[in-house]
Design a binder for these strands. Structure first.
Lengths: 239, 239
DNA sequence: GCCGATTTGTCCGTATGTATC
DNA sequence: CGATACATACGGACAAATCGG
C-alpha cells in the first residue's frame, strides 16, 4: 500500500494507538491535515474514511473528527483484520508452532464443494494444520487451496506460513475475505488433535479468500478452543 | 442516505442479488456506469467502493470489476451488518417475540464500567430482554444505554424495538458499532432464561454502539444458543 | 516485443451543501 | 449571521495494469 492517503491513515492510526489523540478527543480538522501533509482535501478524506472503517474515529459534521477507539481489554487470542496466524499471535504476545497433519492433492467432490464453495471437479490442495500456542494445541485448520494458484506449495512451507509464501514468492495479493463464525460440537478428530480439556464445543471460523484477480482461491475452516477465541470487528453505517 | 453514490450502490447491489450480474462476471465499466447514471468518475467510484467493502465485488485493475458475491448457504440465524433484531429475523424468515425481563435506572459502578465500557458514575438504563424465535427462547440480551441519550424509553418500547424508537422518535443516528465475539459457559441465569437444551456454552456477542455524535451510548451483551448463532462479515485489504 | 485502447487507481483543484457554534 | 468543519459532487490529469493486434 504505497499511496499518500494510506501513509496518512497509518500515521493517524499510530498516533491514536500511541495516545496522542485520546479517546473522545478530536483529531485536527481536515484543513489542518491538508497543511500538515501537504495534500488536498480528497486525499485527507480518503485517509479519514479508512480510519473510520477501522473503528478508530467518527466524523461529526460541523464539529470535527472524534476518536472512538480505546485500548482493548486484553483477551487471550484476538482475531480481526486480514492477517496471518503469525501476525495475530505476535500481536497477542504469543508464538505459534504449526504442525502439518495432512497435505494432499484432491479433486473436489460434491461434499467438498459444499463445504468450501469450490466447484465440483476443481483441483485442490488440501492441508490440515494444528496450531500450538501457550503450550497447547488450540486451533485446528482445515484448508483447501485452488491448486493452480499455489504452485510449488510444500508441507515445509505449510508448516511455516503459506500466506507469506503466496505474497512473497508468488507475488499474489490477498484482498477480500468472507468470514462466517459459528459454534460446533467437537468431533472425535478434534479431540484427538487438540488439547480440548473438557470443552465439548468449538468456535468455527470459516474463511473464504479471494485474490486480486477476484478468484476464490482459499477456503479454511479454523476450529478454535473456545477459551482462546475472540473475534473483533467494526461495522459502520452507510459504508 | 440520500446521495447519488448511495443510490448507485443500492442499484448495483440489488442487481447482483437479483442475479443480473452473476458470480464471477464483470459489471459494466466505470465509463459505462458514468453514462448510465449520468454522473462523474468519482461518484461512480465511491459507489463501487461501498460495493467492494460489503463483499459484493472486487475491482481488478486493467480488467474490470468482478462480482464475488454468491447466494449464501442458509443457516438458522445470521447476523452481520448493523440491523435491528427484527430486521435480522425477517431476513432469516423468522419472527421475534421479545420479553423484557428487567428495566431499571442504575449508576455505573466499577464492575459495570468494565463490562460495558461506560465511565464509573455514568447514569444508565439497564434492560434485559429475552428473544424468542422458532418457538424457543434463544437469545438473552443484557443492554445498558446512556440515560441521557434515551429519554422517554419505557419497558413497552423495549419490548418492541428500541432502535426503531431511537432512530424514529428521537432522530438519533446509529453509526459505528464495535463487536467482539467470544464463547462462554452458560450461567445458572442463562439456563433459567433460555431454552438451552443440553448446550453448556453460549456464543456471546458484545456490541458497543456510537451515535452520530461519536458518543458511546449503548453496550449490549447478546448471549446466543450456539445452534442458532451465525455471524458473517467481510474484510477487505487496504480499506 | 511493442504500441495503443481500455480500465481501474490516485490525486489535484474547485464548488456547493449541511450542520455546528 | 458569519466562521468553521464535514459531505457530496464535478472535471481534469496522470499512473498502472491488462489485452489485443
Amino acid at each position: 500500500m504505497k499511496s499518500i492517503y494510506y501513509d496518512i491513515y497509518k500515521d493517524l492510526r499510530d498516533k491514536i494507538i500511541a495516545g496522542s489523540y485520546p479517546y473522545q478527543s478530536y483529531i485536527p480538522s481536515e484543513l489542518s491535515l491538508i497543511e500538515e501533509y501537504e495534500c488536498t482535501h480528497n486525499t485527507v478524506r480518503k485517509a479519514l474514511q479508512v480510519l473510520t472503517l477501522h473503528g478508530f474515529v467518527q466524523p461529526i459534521r460541523g464539529k470535527g473528527v472524534k476518536v472512538i477507539w480505546q485500548q482493548g481489554r486484553r483477551t487471550r487470542f484476538v482475531l480481526g483484520d486480514i492477517e496471518t496466524m503469525h501476525e495475530a499471535a505476535a500481536k497477542n504476545g504469543l508464538v505459534v508452532e504449526t504442525s502439518v497433519r495432512c497435505f494432499e492433492h484432491i479433486v473436489a467432490d460434491q461434499k467438498i464443494s459444499e463445504l468450501t464453495g469450490f466447484d465440483v471437479g476443481a483441483e485442490l490442495v488440501r492441508v490440515e494444520r494444528v496450531r500450538r500456542l501457550d503450550g497447547a494445541n488450540l486451533i485446528f485448520d482445515k484448508s483447501c487451496f485452488l491448486a493452480s494458484c499455489v504452485p510449488g506449495l510444500t508441507p515445509e512451507i505449510a508448516a511455516d506460513s503459506i500466506f507469506t509464501y503466496l505474497e512473497g514468492e508468488l507475488g499474489m495479493e490477498i484482498t477480500t475475505s468472507n468470514r462466517t463464525i459459528t459454534m460446533e460440537y467437537a468431533t472425535a478428530e478434534d479431540r484427538e488433535v487438540l488439547d480440548l480439556l473438557d470443552f465439548d464445543m468449538l468456535a468455527v471460523l470459516d474463511n473464504r479468500t479471494f485474490n486480486s484477480e477476484g478468484v476464490h482461491f482459499e477456503s479454511t475452516m479454523s476450529r478454535h478452543r473456545p477459551d482462546y477465541f475472540t473475534f473483533m470487528t467494526t461495522a459502520v453505517r452507510g459504508y
